[in-house]
Design a protein around this nucleic acid. Sequence first.
DNA 1: GCAAGGTC
Length: 650
Amino acid sequence: MLGKFIQTRNIGVRIFLNWQEKQSFGNFTCLHVKRKLSDMVNVLNVAEKNSVAKNVAQILGRGAIQTRETGSVYNKLYEFRVYVPSLQNQCLMKMTSVSGHLLSFDFGPEHRKWTSCNPQELFSSPIVRFVPETGMKIKKCLQREIRNCSVLIIWTDCDREGENIGFEIIDVCREVKPNLKILRAHFSEITGPAINRALNTLTEPNKKVSDAVDVRQKLDLRIGAAFTRFLTMGLQVPNNNNNNSDKNNQIISYGSCQFPTLGFVVERWKQREEFVPQPFWYITVESVKDGISCSWNWKRQRLFDERSCIAILSKISEHPTAKVTKINSKQKSKYRPYAMDTVTFERLASSKLRINAKRAMMCAEKLYTSGYISYPRTETNKFPPEIKLNDLVTAQQSSSEWGQFANRIIQNGGATPRNGNKSDQAHPPIHPTKYASNLNGDEKKIYELIVRHFLACCDKDAQGFEVTVQIEINEEIFTLKGLQIKERNYLEVYIYEKWYDKEIPQFVENEMFVPNDIDMKKSETTAPELLTEAQLIALMEKHGIGTDATHADHIEKIKERGYIMVTPTRHLMPKGLGIGLVEAYDDIGFEMSKPYLRAALEKDLVQICEGTKTPEHVLKTHINEYEKVYKESHKQKNRLFELVRTKINS
DNA sequence: GCAAGGTC
C-alpha cells in the first residue's frame, strides 16, 4: 500500500511537469501527456466561499498549490495533488468555490411585475430557478472545469444551507457532465486534522436536507411576495425617503421571520404601555457593628397593603430588640460559562462588547475563514469527547494577556469544560483553533471574547463562602448576607463578569442588639423595559426565528422598514406603522406576528431531513395555511388598512 | 419594489 502510494506520487510529479510543458508548448507533448494523465484522476472540489477553498487547498496541498483566475473576481481556482483514499488514487485536485447560493428562485416573467396579477396568484404561480447575473461567471467556471474531471467533491459548509448549495453546484455541473461521481466532505473547522479527516471520510451528499431548504425557499418567496404586494399596494403609504425609487410608496413588507421579530418588539412595548404600577410597602432595618453598616432584608420582602405593613411596624417598634436566631455558612460557587454557541456569542458581543450582532457575526466569519476559530454558526454548547481541548488551551500560552492563565489550566491537570446539553450534531462549540496576535479593532475584541470564554469554560467555577445571618425583632424575620471569595478561578480570565466580596460583621447565635433604625418605606412596581437587541436575539433563538446568521439581518430589516427604532438607551421601540401592522392582524384573528407558524415550519423541515415527511406534503400544507390567511385579510382589507392608518397617524 | 438564506 505504502509502495503504491509513493509510486503514484512519483507519477504525479512527472505528470505535473508534463502538464506545465503542455501549457507552454501546446500540442507538442499532447500524446505523451494523454497517456500519463490516464493514471491520474481529475477532481473538481467546490467550497461555499473562496476563503474556504483557499485554506483547504493550502492544507491538502501542503503549500504546493498553484493559483489561477476563474473569471469571477472573488473566486480563484487552486490546483494541487493529493492521494484520495476513497478514490484509491493520486488526484489532480482543482479547488474552487461559489459565493453562497448559486441559484435563485423567482416567479415567471408573467408574475414578476407587481401590477401583473392579483397577489393571491403568487401562492400557486410557476416558480423558476436560475443563476442570477451575479453568479454567471461562477457557473461558467464550474462548467468549464468539470469537463475534464470525473469526480466532484462538495466542500460547502456542513449545515442545511450548505447541503443545498452543494446540490446547486451538482446541478450546474451535471448539466454538462451527467455521469459524474459525486462526494461530500464533512468538516467544521479549517485545520489540518479536520480537513484531512474530511478527505478520508467522504460520503454521498444528502438530498433530503437539500430538499428541506428548497421548501423553505419556495414558501418564503410565495408568502413574502404575496403579502408584501398586498400590504404595500393596499396601504399606499407615501415614501418619505427621497431616493430615486420611481414608485412613491413605502414598502410594507411581510416576511416569515421579520414579522414575528416585529411581534416580539411590539409585545414588550404593549406590556409596558398597559402596565399599571402597584404601590407596595416594606420595612428596613439598619445597624452598625465593628464599624460596618448593615442593611437587613425583610423576609416578607414587601406588602401590597399599607395598613398591614403599618401594623407590623408598630408591633416590632414595641420591642425593637433584634436577636440573632440563625447563622448559616456555606460554600457558594459562581459557575463558569457553558461552551459557546452562536446565540450566546451574539448576545455577549452585543451586551459586553457593544458590538451589534450583525457586525459580530461578520468578524467571527472572518476569524473562521482565517483559521483562528471554529465554525461560528453552531447550536452546540458541549464539546465532543474526542476534541483535544488541552492542545487548544496550550496554543493560547503564547499570549501575554491570558497565556499564564492557559498555562495554569494545564498545570492544574488540564481542561475541564462546562458542557451544556445542546448539540446540532454538526459543529462543536465556538472555540479558538490557534493563537492570533496580529488582529485589530472589533476583530481583536471578538477573538478575545471567544478565547476568554473558552478558557473560562475550561477552568473551574469561582468559589466563595457565604454567611447568612437571621434575626428576629418581635417575631419579624430579617436576614443579612456576606460573601468572602476564596478562589476566583475562571473570573481571572473572564473579565466580562464581576463577583464582589461583601463584608459583614461577626455575629453569634442568640446575640441581642438594638438596631439603629427601623423604618417603613413606600415604593411601586416598575414596568418591564423595552427589549434590547441581546434579549430580542434570545427570543428569536428560543422560538426558531431565522438562523444564527440572520437574526441580526431581520432586526435591521424591521428598522429599515420603519417598523421600529432604537432609543438612545439602545432599547427597541416600535413605531406607529409597526404597532399598526401587528394589531391589525391580531384584530382580524391571525397570529401572523407570533412565532408559532415559523416554528411549525421548522419542525416540518427537520422531518423532511429525517425522511418522515415528504417535501411536497410540507410545501402544500403550509401554502394552504397561508393562503387561507391571505383570503381572509383580503376580505377584511378595509378594516385592516384602516386600523394600520390610524396607528401610523397616532 | 416582494422573502430568507448564502456571501464579497
